[in-house]
Design a protein around this nucleic acid. Structure first.
Lengths: 169, 169
DNA sequence: CGTCCCTCGTTTTAAATGCAACAATTCGGA
DNA sequence: TCCGAATTGTTGCATTTAAAACGAGGGACG
């Protein structure tokens, strides 16, 4: 049923049979599992603020960032969330349009754009935040407190490493 | 510099001031961090098979799945990777076009489509797999063996929980 | 000053995405 | 047996995305 796995050991240089030894088992391949998990988590969580407040993922991320640190530039939000600056730019445009944030240029550096939550934006943020935290709590119910702390730490380590790898190319 | 954080405690029922207590700190909000990490990891890894083999993420995922379990239906690949079936369908179409996989209907159930790697597909898989594993190894260098095992286990737990939450609504 | 280079954010464009509609097929129960 | 429900994969469509080009500033250095 799997006998054709070696049917392709042909001349092509490079790795080949080698792959059979240290085989790629998708079930244990971290990038894959990370992507699947993150996708499902994001999907479930985003339905909360999409259904009730009509916000997209990038829009909510802008609000969530401003909810924590204010004011903040588009560029900084993009960096923090590893989002394309174009994506942030559009999310910001829609949020300004919807009256949830304010956008003005920095007095000292006219390239910079100073973003803040409007009163209405703050209100919506304060409604969504507890829902988001409650959902997270349900997810984290799968782990013990020790495990949560451990997971947190490991994610941070991997994040740091991933950034280092990116800079190195 | 942050004094306007409470400038919006108005009448709107529901959570509000409450949010200030159990505040949403994005830096510690798991769904957000997971998304950021997964995005960076995926981005870095995908550049490997995109640059050298012209494969998109969904395309590589189809190949990676078939590299492990063969044959496999489109639907199963979609389920395993929490991908939209349309996304898989299109990736499959391109891979068939490129001659990397074969597609035939199941004899017993004509709705099912039986996917297999072609010789060429297997060859490409066997070239990419070691590169992917090497990249993963570099990432995991940030963790000790114990930590890796721990992380693996915790991801699995969260994955299970996330699925349970999805089914529940 | 003036020139060159860098940064921030927007816009443009082609490709990818999610969702819903759809056809084909199978399955279960009256 | 027959009809309605469920499943599998494809397609159409509107939206979103990534990547690159772009415009407007800013800063360094002659």
């Amino acid at each position: 049923m799997e006998e054709n796995a070696r049917a392709s050991n042909e001349a092509e240089g490079e790795p080949d049979e080698t792959a059979a030894a240290g085989a790629l088992e998708l079930d244990r391949f971290l990038p894959y599992r990370l992507a699947v998990l993150a996708h499902e988590v994001s999907r479930a969580l985003s339905s909360i603020y999409r259904d009730r407040f009509g916000l997209s993922v990038p829009e909510w991320r802008v609000i969530a960032n401003l909810g924590r640190h204010q004011p903040m530039s588009s560029n900084r939000i993009a960096e923090l969330g590893s989002m394309d600056k174009a994506k942030v730019s559009r999310a910001v445009a829609r949020l300004v349009e919807a009256g949830l944030i304010t956008r003005e240029t920095d007095a000292r550096d006219n390239r910079l754009i100073v973003l803040k939550l409007s009163a209405r934006g703050r209100r919506i943020h304060n409604k969504i935040a507890p829902l988001a935290l409650a959902w997270e709590a349900e997810l984290l119910d799968a782990l013990t407190p020790d495990e949560r702390e451990s997971f947190d730490r490991l994610v941070a380590k991997l994040q740091t490493r991933a950034e280092a790898l990116r800079e190195r190319g």
